[in-house]
Design a protein around this nucleic acid. Structure first.
Length: 121
DNA sequence: CCCTGATTCGC
DNA sequence: GCGAATCAGG
């Protein structure tokens, strides 16, 4: 397909008239792909085609929890060493009345009541 | 499944 | 630069 000024003019005219790519293609004797391709290359206005290609996935970036993010319901379990960069707190919802979430409360309070164990032993 | 247009890809 | 192929939505 040779795109002369005449062809381009026809293309633009038909495109502006609102003809579909298929119609224009038929008119010019080319495939709709050629029409839409040329039209796009010419920078013609986009007709009703809300196609969104290149759907980029929104990636949830891991947010570091710092001290200021802590509230009464965020687990205060320290992750890492406080002196280390990137140190943060767990931040997951805490158990009622406890500063830790279920997961860390289990660790925090394990063997807290040693008296009976020691007494028994 | 048909149509539409947009973008990608090989020539 | 070209258009088919592919993608994507109605």
């Amino acid at each position: 397909m040779v795109w002369n000024d005449d062809n381009i003019e026809q293309l633009k005219r038909l495109w502006a008239e609102g003809l579909t790519t298929g119609e224009i293609g038929k008119e010019l004797g080319v495939s709709k792909n050629a029409v839409v391709g040329k039209a796009h290359r010419l920078g013609l206005k986009s007709r009703p085609s809300p196609i969104k290609r290149g759907a980029k996935e929104a990636k949830p970036e891991p947010k570091i929890r710092s001290l200021v993010d802590l509230s009464a319901h965020t687990c205060r379990w320290p992750i890492g060493d406080p002196r280390d960069p990137g140190f943060h707190f767990c931040g997951k919802p805490t158990l009622p009345g406890k500063p830790y979430c279920a997961e860390h409360a289990a660790i925090a309070y394990v063997s807290s009541n040693r008296s009976k164990d020691e007494d028994a032993a």
